[in-house]
Nucleic acid binder design. Structure first.
Length: 209
DNA sequence: GTTGTGATGCTCT
DNA sequence: GAGCATCACAACA
């Protein structure tokens, strides 16, 4: 039996959920205080048939087993000394996920600055950077249902993007079948989107309606 | 402002 | 021992 919260993360295409997450509030109620921000960039990973997915070809290891869990579970993994977070989507056993790639800081910016030792957009304009900004530097919450975890998406708090932009995913192997698939979504013009160039940012509205 | 490159920690083969 | 769903900084314009 799925909760209402879990149902948000299943029963419709992963790419649709990924776009629906843009503008939602990501919060972490951690030991140093509560921090959070608006999600401005996501990527969809489509499971066993997606060459860029950790579950490609049905790969099922101890490391990535959380992907096979319930919708709304956290999948936290480490890559090159950095931590990233996925939201598990689709029903249990269907290993699809949505990578949260960037947030616009909204709650407790001073603490995020301190966590990052950086200023400006560099605080959270990338998947590893946003986790550092929140203060999550371990896999302890891997596999937990977000609903019961200190790291969660507040579905009832949201802003509306003026326009959603689409592109190939970042950092995946371009030579493989899905290397250039258009599975990355972001708030057009938001300066905190990874790789966003200054001349393409909308500094008035940050791309929100 | 933009581009290139080296450091990085851990898992799986 | 390879291969990463990355980041920071130096170099160039």
């Amino acid at each position: 039996m799925l909760t209402t919260y879990q149902q948000f993360f299943t029963k419709r295409p992963t790419k649709e959920i990924a776009q629906d997450l843009l503008g939602r509030m990501l919060v972490y109620d951690g030991p140093k205080g509560k921090v959070g921000g608006w999600i401005v960039e996501t990527e969809a990973y489509l499971g066993v048939n997606d060459t860029a997915s950790h579950a490609y070809g049905g790969r099922h290891t101890n490391y990535s087993k959380s992907l096979y869990g319930n919708p709304g579970d956290l999948y936290i993994y480490q890559i090159r000394s950095h931590y990233c977070v996925d939201i598990v989507v689709q029903d249990q056993g269907e290993p699809q996920g949505i990578l949260l790639r960037a947030i616009e800081p909204a709650i407790n910016l001073p603490l995020m600055k301190q966590n990052r030792s950086q200023t400006g957009v560099a605080i959270s304009n990338g998947p590893g950077k946003l986790m550092m900004a929140l203060g999550v530097q371990s896999r302890a919450m891997d596999g937990q249902p977000m609903e019961k975890s200190p790291l969660k998406i507040e579905l009832d708090q949201r802003r509306t993007p003026k326009q959603i932009a689409v592109s190939p995913r970042i950092g995946v192997n371009l030579k493989q079948k899905d290397g250039k698939a258009l599975n990355r979504f972001y708030v057009a013009g938001n300066p905190y989107v990874s790789g966003m160039r200054k001349r393409d940012s909308d500094l008035e509205t940050h791309g929100w309606r």
